[in-house]
Design a protein around this nucleic acid. Structure first.
Length: 230
DNA sequence: TAGGCCATCTGGTCCT
DNA sequence: AGGACCAGATGGCCTA
């Protein structure tokens, strides 16, 4: 299958994502940024700290106009019943926690996407600006690691062979991630062996001799990895 | 217009 | 109790 030239996003999108500004389609009904939601949350917290305002009392014919605006309520007895107010407070607290959890979840997904972008950066793509989808990135990375592992293994075997022939090298133009393994902020696998996490180097998706697996970017799903391996 | 991809919200579960 | 993680639902955007 051919490489899908996905040019949805200009290269700058990665930067935006890393800055947490990359959400192209925020829900219209929701705050457009985390900050706004933060504000909303602040508001909620503020409201929580203060006494929950009584529901606007509708004047009989008054279209929601509040009577005695600006005047303090005389006493508690005039407000909503205690049960109602506590229920309302509980609702507000619940809502506030939900908003916080939403924020955390959003950040978590942004971090995940940033990691995915870092992974994309070390994977060779053709053409250069083609952006792999998430699933493609993971599958490609899986196969890519496997292929590099095979390359190293074959190179080692060749060195030990009778003729000492030259070892296979990664395809030209491939920004070999191996070069960055020695260090760097985004080094994908500092010291961990590709064999780690029970990932068999034999083949990520079947027989090692199967040409589908390398550089088969769209190879059908590799065998499921153990959870928390990726 | 259908389908793919994505971001976000949400409630549940597990962990610290 | 609060945070992390997860999976399902939903809606927007884009492309064939």
């Amino acid at each position: 299958m051919l490489v899908k030239a996905e040019v949805l996003a200009p290269p700058a999108e990665d930067e935006l994502l890393l800055l947490g500004l990359g959400s192209p389609a925020p829900s219209p009904s929701l705050p457009s940024s985390a900050e706004e939601e933060e504000e909303e949350e602040e508001e909620e917290e503020e409201e929580l700290r203060a006494a929950p305002p009584a529901r606007p009392v509708e004047a009989p014919g008054g279209r929601g106009l509040r009577r005695a605006e600006g005047k303090r309520r005389p006493g508690r007895s005039r407000g909503a019943p205690r049960a109602a107010r506590t229920a309302e407070t509980a609702q507000r607290i619940k809502r506030s926690r939900r908003l916080k959890a939403n924020n955390r979840e959003r950040n978590r997904m942004h971090n995940l996407n940033a990691a995915l972008d870092a992974l994309r950066d070390v994977l060779p793509t053709f053409p250069e600006d083609a952006k792999l989808t998430k699933i493609e990135t993971l599958r490609f990375a899986h196969n890519y690691i496997w292929a590099l592992t095979e390359t190293l293994r074959l190179a080692g075997a060749a060195r030990l062979g009778p003729d000492g022939a030259a070892a296979a090298v990664p395809a030209e133009g491939s920004p070999s991630p191996a070069s960055s393994w020695s260090g760097g902020a985004a080094s994908p696998a500092p010291s961990a062996s590709p064999y780690a996490c029970t990932l068999s180097p034999a083949s990520p998706a079947g027989s090692a001799s199967d040409p589908e697996h390398w550089p088969g970017r769209f190879a059908p799903g590799p065998p499921p990895l153990p959870r928390r391996c990726l």
